[in-house]
Design a protein around this nucleic acid. Sequence first.
DNA 1: CCTACCGATCGGTAGG
DNA 2: CCTACCGATCGGTAGG
Lengths: 206, 206
Amino acid sequence: MTTHDNAAASRRTGGYANGRARRQQILDAAMNLFGDVGYRSASLREIAARVGISHPGLLHHFPTKEALLLAVLERRDEIDTATLQEDSDDGVELLRRVIDIVALNTHRRGVVELYTALAAEATSATHPAHDYFTQRYRHTLAAVTRAYRLTHEQGHLRDGISPAAAAAQLVAVMDGLQLQWLLDGGRTDMTGVVREFIAAQLTVAL
Amino acid sequence: MTTHDNAAASRRTGGYANGRARRQQILDAAMNLFGDVGYRSASLREIAARVGISHPGLLHHFPTKEALLLAVLERRDEIDTATLQEDSDDGVELLRRVIDIVALNTHRRGVVELYTALAAEATSATHPAHDYFTQRYRHTLAAVTRAYRLTHEQGHLRDGISPAAAAAQLVAVMDGLQLQWLLDGGRTDMTGVVREFIAAQLTVAL
DNA sequence: CCTACCGATCGGTAGG
DNA sequence: CCTACCGATCGGTAGG
């Protein structure tokens, strides 16, 4: 039905609606397989089979396996970075947004699997996403450090906590909890533990 | 020289000294390659080449790739679990030992790479080390929770911190920091950040 | 988008 | 421990 509607729409618009829909299907399938077995062990044939095309068919949309990887990362990055980069001078408000991301991730197992698998894989200097993750962590840590610095300036950060160390801790807690959450079948209360962690650093209620 | 000495020793003892030495070489090479590219993407041929034998030669020592993986994990597990399982009723003392492990890891990049790569890979239910890591985390979390419970009973844990949540946080911080440390070329001060993290939970000096 | 194919590589076995 | 081999699978290309 959907396919028929899309085909009709394509005829109507004369555009590339089908191609765009197919690309989305491929990106979704690639995200899931990369998350399950990592980039290196994932095969283009398996991804193609999951969307019902041949693997040369897939390569028509993404010229190489590496291009597919970068497209998956680019697409999946938008939400999280936007959330933290949105301008705000309220440190505690920014930390609340971090908690919101954690809560959101609870309902996006595929995304969590993707980043857990790829971040670990990309610590290898020869991995095609090595530079991507190196920069991603640098930016994330800078943004979270800023949130804690603002919190400190507003007098809401506990004494003896340095913004840089607090940021390294928070980012680490989030990554580490995702690992625990994936390993124990979603029983870990990621949101609750992160909230408790941040609350213990502040002198005000969250 | 070493090879010659070993050969001489083998002739003297008539035992399996060479075989044991070869097994150690294989386990070291496997640890390094598993840590670099993960288990699935590592090849027996590459590991064998690094110790100067053929890949059927490697299979003479370890019958399957999976057996090699489990042997690597078994061997590398001893230090850490022993450190935490050693009997002590002093919670703060146990937490100090955790810091010692982090400090030790700073000088064992290969081990850190191994666990970071394999833990993420093993979140997949079909991974041969899935059960191993599931149990490893359960045991580690139980041991660390006990350390915080003892700390609490001794009146050295800050108010409002639950032992179970504190344990999940500490294990998560350690795993997450390893990721940051690997990605930024060892610049992250894992030991300092973990010490600061634990210190902030306690009412006594570390 | 397809079939057909390329050279390379995989884990494991046969047989010594 | 070796050489030689097995069937399976890989990313990518040719040519339509």
